[in-house]
Design a protein around this nucleic acid. Structure first.
Lengths: 147, 147
DNA sequence: TATTGTTATACTCTATAACTATA
DNA sequence: TATAGTTATAGAGTATAACAATA
């Protein structure tokens, strides 16, 4: 990798990005989410919504729409899905009753825990990396996500 | 990170994986693909299919279905999309005329080059990493993808 | 008869526009 | 009047089942 002499940070970032991209779109990445859907019997959209309630804090419909960058009407159907499964409830916010907060039920919290275990299961290709490489990768991704 | 003493490789892999996952599903990862769609005016499915022809080699319908892990009938509609845009053509394989190979047209190859430039553009959050961190990240992802 | 791919069809995902309730 | 969310509806995305062509 000494061949990077004279290259810009942007070039290297672009290449790293290409591989991140391929890992997800063409590699192992995709499959994990699917298997979590199958294991829980939840539709992908509903599962994604459940995951965004992970924090345990109430989240309003509008905040979900912003988080997913989708239309509010779609959030309506996603949260309908959560309610039908008994995973969350809508509660009008007392301070402004136009706003509806979505809150986890006990069942929802339990399901989330289960899902967490499945999604926490890394894809098989990650076994190729050594312990210290995995630590390094985790460190880098933390900076990328939380930064 | 010395707190990893006594922990298993699987645990650390799981955590690294969680962040990779969040980067894509909730972070910057998603947006890049969308912007490539907008820049080229191609539907996501068609763009994904175009990308899987990157190698320049003919790829059969069945191979595409396997690659995407989707139903063959959906590949039919994806490749219809490529043909409508003039990006690729179906050619019955001489040695077995049941299989149809999908091959890039000149326009397809040009478009692919353009798309490559857009997707090569890393998401802004990657600027947070230093040059050597980016090199390390690239190295790790290469191992993950190429094995 | 078995395999590759297509057609017809239906179901899921997601957005747009018009609407209701609250502010 | 402006904002948060819902309803009705329409358009993509994707699968299933029956089919056609080739082996």
């Amino acid at each position: 990798m000494a061949a990077d002499r004279g290259r810009t940070k942007e070039e290297v970032a672009g290449e790293a990005w290409q591989y991140l991209y391929r890992f997800f779109f063409e590699g192992d990445g995709q499959r994990c989410f699917r298997s979590a859907c199958e294991a829980t019997g939840l539709a992908p959209g509903v599962l994604k919504t459940l995951l965004s309630l992970r924090g345990g804090e109430p989240v309003s419909m509008g905040e979900l729409a912003e988080h997913f960058r989708c239309d509010p009407s779609y959030v309506t159907s996603l949260v309908d899905g959560l309610e039908e499964e008994g995973l969350a409830e809508r509660k009008p916010r007392p301070s402004d009753r136009r706003v509806k907060d979505v809150v986890l039920t006990d069942v929802g919290a339990k399901t989330l825990e289960h899902v967490g275990k499945i999604l926490g299961e890394p894809p098989p290709s990650m076994a190729k990396l050594s312990f210290s490489e995995l630590r390094k990768l985790r460190e880098l991704m933390v900076r990328l996500v939380d930064g």
